[in-house]
Design a protein around this nucleic acid. Structure first.
Lengths: 189, 189
DNA sequence: AAGAGTAACAAACGATCGTTTGCTATCGGG
DNA sequence: CCCGATAGCAAACGATCGTTTGTTACTCTT
């Protein structure tokens, strides 16, 4: 066993936070996952909360970069929406642990750290709202449904994926993106 | 201050579990919420987990009764789906704390209790799947979208409501039901 | 090859956790 | 009206929590 890096520790923390939750994970649990003692983790970080901050910030940055890339991929709201959906699914599936911790354990952050993350998240979600609002004004989407509510619905579906998707299942990411986009655009009828 | 009933204790537990999570809520917290000491709670229940079981079972029963009523309200899949949606929203909004605990803290249950709840939930979700599948075979819904996936999408939206809905906001329950049903049926275009 | 830096250990710190015990005071049924 | 039942208190139990300390042993730099 070679010595561990700070990244190794953060990655293992994300794994445990995603599986058991922040409060149900002790520093001794984390040490066990890494093959060291609980107290030895403090050679790499200065507190347990710092681990949570690091994991959540990492996921936040991934979502932000994904959104930035999606918005610059096209000028048309419908294509932008599909790119946003594809990007979100990609982040969730490629970085399950960080995404899961980001979505479920942000409430365990201290006040100031939590507000910073909530701010990031609001910015991200506002992109979905504005893309859908643009689609309505351009006539690409129908105009009798509130854009904010529609964006909330789409984001609800996206954020729930980590709760049911299994990488070894029969739903592959590409068809999931297609089906979700089609559902968002046309519903079930 | 009169003496407390077992229901008072369970209700307060649901309030704290919903707000702070199960692991972040101590028996002394719960005692403080009730105006008694932490140890005094054991005059009403025999363990902390029993409180969680009680709260989660209560929510499970509410969802089950709501589904039963919705299914018997009509023979047509589209009306049944709308009734299921209306009922689910009603349970979430009328019993926020229990519903929130049911949705977010079930993972904190011990193995056997958790499996029982997961079973209940699977039965409930299967209703949505079968209603949508029926709607497809009857021609009420389009046939090129997987019924299981569509049900998952609708349930994702329903289960996320407790995360963003504020009772003092500008979205009232009836229009939320209508908008969600319309979104599910027709999408955003 | 020597020395600086540090990952990890072993052990303990005070705080808090869920829970138990012995007791007091209050309440409802005969 | 009295007496058994019990809600709640005060205090403590052992376990575990996040964190700190002092030390050892390894690794990298020069």
């Amino acid at each position: 066993m070679s010595r561990l890096s700070r990244d190794d520790v953060i990655e293992a923390a994300g794994r445990l936070f995603a599986k058991q939750g922040y409060h149900a994970t002790s520093m001794r649990d984390l040490g066990g996952e890494l093959g060291i003692l609980g107290g030895s983790v403090y050679a790499h970080v200065s507190s347990k909360e710092e681990l949570l901050v690091e994991v959540v910030q990492r996921a936040g940055r991934l979502f932000g970069e994904s959104a930035e890339q999606a918005m610059s991929s096209s000028e048309h709201p419908e294509d932008q929406l599909k790119a946003l959906i594809r990007g979100h699914i990609g982040v969730v599936l490629d970085h399950r642990d960080e995404a899961q911790t980001f979505l479920n354990e942000a409430t365990a952050l201290g006040e100031s750290n939590r507000q910073a993350i909530v701010g990031e998240r609001d910015t991200y979600e506002a992109l979905f709202r504005s893309v859908i609002a643009d689609g309505i004004t351009e006539g690409a989407f129908r105009s009798d449904l509130d854009a904010n509510l529609a964006a909330t619905f789409v984001l609800s579906i996206l954020n729930a994926i980590e709760r049911w998707y299994r990488p070894d299942g029969r739903v592959d990411p590409a068809s999931l993106t297609n089906d979700l986009h089609r559902f968002a655009i046309s519903g079930i009828s």
